[in-house]
Design a binder for these strands. Structure first.
Lengths: 345, 345
DNA sequence: TTAATATAAGAAAGCGCTTACATTTCATCT
DNA sequence: AGATGAAATGTAAGCGCTTTCTTATATTAA
């Protein structure tokens, strides 16, 4: 039920017929050279290209799509972020995506679900006949059934799946967290707490597991009261850190599952009159650029978000072009960036 | 010269003919009810809608566009940002845009110019026959001639133009800077320096003017060596601030033309062993969320970026729909957010 | 040289819609 | 009841491309 109130663009663009007339060939030939398809004699190819230049002709994509029933745009489905990290993540991901999508001459369609039942939202997307494939960041959501019942190719970013058919590109959250905690252990810390992220989000869960594993492997018992329930928000981290500082046994180091939370934690520590890393060593996750603006500069686990975006775009395009079979799975590795927020003990 | 390697979506979607047959009416009638256009008897309207539901029919947008030569998608042209503010600005703007564009059932096409001559880039956009209008953030660039010679509606964001036909939505940079400096004057400061932004960008220029004007109006002479040439980058601001602190006459307050630069300035001050606001009062511009994470929390000028995005989207849609005549010009006001980085003197 | 084959070019039939125009239906007024 | 005009519906001609099929031309083989 779309209102019929759209604007009409002046119908003065040259069409393929004009080019054909100008080059004195048939429109079929013009189409062949436009699409670099079939065989055209060099002489005619040149004439057509000249005509195209002369008339400044650009093919009408709607017509092309209608006639060919082919499709090449990439859709990007994102949740509605509202925090600092969301904005960082989004822009970084976009950098990778755009660096692949635009040089490949694809269109990038942004798709936000604003107040629509999820099924309807995806059905609508599927019926946009010009979208060839999707890149999805789902946060805490599952892959929608409408999607996996369809035959549109999609790759999910920032999550892993055991289902064979689901393509994803993720990041080694577990290993990253493991490395961070191992680093703290290496500095001599034994009382290492964590403020973890939302556990309904995969990355939150995996980072917690990495933390536990690293402690176990170091022969350090995992203490229940050293595990603080966070949700990736700064404010929560502030509260949890404050709580941690009031407990009988105060940790000497804390692994915080995101930089944004590390910010809150650091503030809580300072507000208590304590020092980072003097009293408490801190490691974050993400490598948000603000990390190096804090004092002390935050030691953190960098995740290659841009790279993830780039790879996601490359993959979805290959899937659209059928150059790749579904089932593409990749986990990119993280890197511990050592700065000034941890000390030997 | 597009390679012919796109994927074909299974051609099993029901068409308008199927609906017409199912509802036992003509395709014209179906089209009328789809577009809510012309007159259709209630009885038939219902039958068509039932048939649409039953078959799960969705119109083929490419066909619709080709036939009607009408168009409703919104294109968003952005520069390639690489700094923190860019990412903040981009996400904030997007928030406003998406909150308008998606409920209005328009598509949002992201357009980045990656290594393409500007003219070609815009010509390509214009020939995307499904883009009805554009929102542009141009940074230091001018409106491209290809664009203003065309008849596509567009609104420029974050800049002002005297040309009558150019639609823009901007922010009162001058007044914002003026208010900030006036505030410093009110606190008793007389030696007020500024680190300004890139002067080839309007906002940079206007903020500098606001600074000068505020001083003049307060009867304070504008001192040449209190005006430091910045470019919105943190690093430059760090250097300029350091320089400022080494000069004979050290200011008691500095108006820094962006929060990102304020970050650099603050660091420079601390690195010199001085205190904010103890020795130097600081005011920023933007109200980047990190402002309230700094210590001291940064006093700054908030600009309504999301609101700008929202208005830009509303405007471009009204222009597409011809509900608005070209020449829409609006400047949104800023707001001084007083936090802890300034003191009385 | 001619036959056989490969290559190049064109003609024309759609793709799934919109819409101008023609036609039918229906309510209203003499 | 017949005339009249408005409302409802249908018919059919495109929109600008792609692509199949056909035909013409060039190349090679015999």
């Amino acid at each position: 039920m779309v209102k019929n109130n759209m604007k009409t663009r002046k119908g003065k663009f040259p069409s393929i017929d004009d080019v054909a007339r100008e080059a004195d060939v048939s429109i079929a030939t013009v189409s062949r050279v436009i699409n670099n398809f079939g065989s055209v004699k060099e002489r005619n190819k040149l004439r057509v290209m000249d005509a195209i230049d002369k008339l400044n002709f650009k093919p009408n994509i709607s017509a092309s799509r209608l006639a060919s029933n082919k499709v090449n745009s990439v859709g990007l489905v994102m949740p509605v972020y509202d925090d600092m990290f969301g904005s960082f993540f989004f822009t970084e991901l976009m950098k990778g995506i755009r660096d692949v999508v635009f040089p490949a001459r694809r269109d990038l369609i942004l798709l936000y679900n604003i107040n629509e039942p999820e099924d309807d939202f995806y059905r609508r997307i599927l019926n946009k006949t010009y979208i060839g494939g999707l890149i999805l960041e789902l946060g805490a959501l599952e892959v929608n059934p409408v999607l996996w019942k369809s035959d549109i190719p999609y790759v999910v970013v920032n999550a892993t799946y055991t289902e064979q058919r689901i393509n994803y590109i993720s990041v080694s959250n577990r290993a990253g967290a493991y490395e961070a905690v191992k680093y703290l252990v290496g500095l001599g810390h034994r009382k290492i707490a964590t403020i973890h992220g939302a556990l309904n989000i995969q990355s939150g869960n995996e980072r917690l597991e990495g933390y536990k594993q690293a402690l176990s492997d170091a022969g350090i018992p995992v203490q229940r009261d050293f595990i603080m329930d966070g949700n990736f928000y700064r404010k929560t981290a502030y509260e949890k850190m404050s709580r941690l500082l009031e407990s009988k046994e105060i940790p000497t180091a804390v692994f915080v599952a995101s930089d944004e939370m590390a910010l809150g934690a650091m503030k809580a520590i300072k507000d208590k009159g304590l020092d980072v890393p003097g009293n408490i060593s801190l490691v974050g996750f993400d490598d948000n650029p603000m990390c190096s603006e804090l004092s002390p500069k935050l030691t953190t686990v960098r995740q290659p978000i841009t790279e993830m975006g780039r790879l996601a775009a490359e993959t979805v395009i290959r899937l659209i072009d059928k150059e790749e079979k579904p089932g593409f799975k990749k986990t990119l590795s993280t890197e511990l960036i050592i700065r000034d927020s941890c000390r030997k003990i």
